[in-house]
Design a protein around this nucleic acid. Structure first.
Lengths: 345, 345
DNA sequence: CAAATGATCCAAACCGCTTTGGATAGCGGC
DNA sequence: GCCGCTATCCAAAGCGGTTTGGATCATTTG
């Protein structure tokens, strides 16, 4: 169905060796010959068979993203999709294939072993790290190059990661609210054991402490970041004897839920109550314009995907490279959802 | 790094041939020998090298999803992610790899050619078909098995697809609103040239016609399905001299925008104004419970991904199989967002 | 009992590409 | 005219599997 190197070589009266070298830029081939080969290759729409090539070279030219699905945590969320898209762009540009493997939660370990044993990939991207994530140890032992999107606290061996500064982000957002006079600030966070959630909570707690405010457990929630979760959290907290005057949301989706919960009670964001959310800059949930709807800690997860992929490719391309890390700062954008505390709320 | 067939064979004092046959279930191998081989393979964590295997067999054991990114249309949306997840589950279960290739809009044709020439995949999934989609013709000519998620109207050669009954869905939803006395019904649809959007509009128009209502262009919109799009559409349409009393939304995200637009104007869904949306059953935007927030035409896009993948694998596994098609019906679920028309709106 | 039949196993070719280790020829220098 | 060099090209051996075409030996059959 498609032309092979051997056929191409035969049609040119050359050996496969020479054709291979001509196409791969080796020096020991005559310039005229090279040109002839390249032209013929283009004309025949010749592309080397990936399988054969990687079998011969030992490099798979592919990166895997393993996606565990479970009943407890849904990793296939919008943020994940955008990250993948960013990473995919980078892989494509560098001639790497991106393979996605959807596995059952408890098969994840086996999936990495399998990927390695089958020689299907040169490296893997680790998604959604927990506070204590066993995958780092496993992958290190396996010797499979990997990069973590996020970090994990309970690991002391070095590893490569790219993360946003979750702690500083939420520290700053909290501080911002405190400066406006808020003292009852709710945190509607992601799942408890997710590392990013822990860091955000830390930033939040530190800022409260800095402002001399004792944290109230009733104002802190952890759960899967769905819209109804935000809705319920907002509605329930408002009923407290001492309700919050401001909310911190871990994602736009949650923020939308909070907004709905509050507006159903007749509360207007920015006037009656304040909300700051983290904004991953997802295309279908834009939070921009002259005055964005939400005040937010902003960072493009798509860009994160691009950079993470670049780092991983570097790791794969130059083994021996020490662990690579990058901490992306977020920007605090002012939107219409925050204002000074209003006592008669 | 990982054990090869040859090594395994040597360690057992057998030939590679026998080991290969033992593991692949060929009949001409002694039961005791097979057991011995299987045990040893499990013990050594032996997995055949994918590249070598597919080079030898000619089958790639992989399916590609090509994702065109462009400035005009963002295919990396939440719906897409869930579909991918469903499909991925199926691939994994059947020992197929899923490869995602993110390409620039105008490179999509080349991407398919490349995928084919390199022998990287056995089949491809086509996403987001337009009303007149050139990809069907291209893939048919290339002879690469493919399955379309959705359909395309401007193609008369047969091809395989899986779609939901968009037309009937929106026909029914419109009828439902008409039965409640609504005569000014707005359609906040997806991008104009997307096939699903055309079918939904057809269903909508037919239902209006059936109810003796002349469609009003001012009540029909097409655009990328973002939250602010829903918001703006709702707010602007309400300002019309003859505002709509009901909205039909093409996705939950858009419906959220509409809801926000309306509630900012003090309108309450189900009481002052009605909204029906299409609900793809995304996990982080659930629309369930005793009384779902939105009345909706519901269909799991994840399940669609599973089924589509199954069909594609069948196509790949048994070439010569005629085109496979499946039309999934949606269910109309009653939620809190619809009610009889209210004159004093 | 010889021949035919199965049951098992193996050697070697092959899939399409890379790469090692020459081979050949043209050329300047002595 | 011979030698060493460089430039250019090629044969053949892998990479790690599958598969074709026997080989070997025990068992059945006439």
């Amino acid at each position: 169905m498609s032309v092979t190197l051997k056929q191409l070589a035969a049609s040119l009266g050359l050996s496969p060796t020479t054709v291979s070298r001509a196409l791969n830029g080796f020096p020991e081939v005559n310039a005229a010959t090279r040109k002839r080969v390249e032209d013929a290759a283009a004309r025949a729409n010749y592309h080397p068979n990936t399988r054969a090539k990687s079998l011969a070279t030992g490099r798979a030219q592919a990166i895997a993203h393993v996606i565990p699905v479970s009943t407890s945590h849904e990793i296939v969320n919008p943020v994940f999709a955008d990250f993948i898209a960013g990473a995919g762009e980078t892989y494509a540009r560098n001639g790497y294939e991106m393979i996605l493997r959807v596995v059952n939660d408890d098969d994840e370990t086996q999936a990495y072993r399998d990927l390695l044993a089958r020689g299907s990939v040169d490296g893997v991207m680790v998604h959604g790290p927990r506070t204590f994530d066993p995958r780092i140890k496993l992958l290190t032992e396996l010797g499979l190059p990997f990069l973590v999107h996020g970090r994990t606290s309970g690991v002391n061996t070095p590893y490569s990661w790219l993360d946003i500064n979750n702690q500083r982000s939420f520290h700053r957002a909290t501080q911002f609210l405190c400066d406006f006079g808020h003292r009852r600030i709710a945190l509607i966070n992601g799942l408890q054991d997710m590392d990013f959630a822990a860091r955000r909570r830390n930033g939040y707690l530190q800022a409260l402490e800095g402002a001399g405010i004792a944290p109230d457990p009733a104002l802190i929630r952890h759960a899967e970041m769905t819209e109804p979760y935000g809705y319920r959290a907002a509605q329930e907290m408002i009923q407290l004897t001492e309700p919050p005057t401001a909310f911190l949301a871990s994602s736009m989706i949650v923020a939308y839920g909070i907004r709905r919960g509050l507006s159903d009670l007749g509360l207007k964001l920015g006037r009656d109550i304040s909300v700051i959310t983290h904004d991953d800059e997802l295309s279908y949930l834009p939070n921009d314009g002259d005055v964005p709807m939400f005040t937010a800690t902003r960072s493009s997860v798509r860009e994160a995907g691009r950079r993470a992929a670049n780092m991983l490719l570097q790791l794969v391309g130059q083994p021996g490279t020490g662990p690579l890390t990058e901490l992306m700062e977020t920007t605090l954008v002012l939107g219409a959802s925050t204002g000074p505390v209003r006592n008669c709320a």
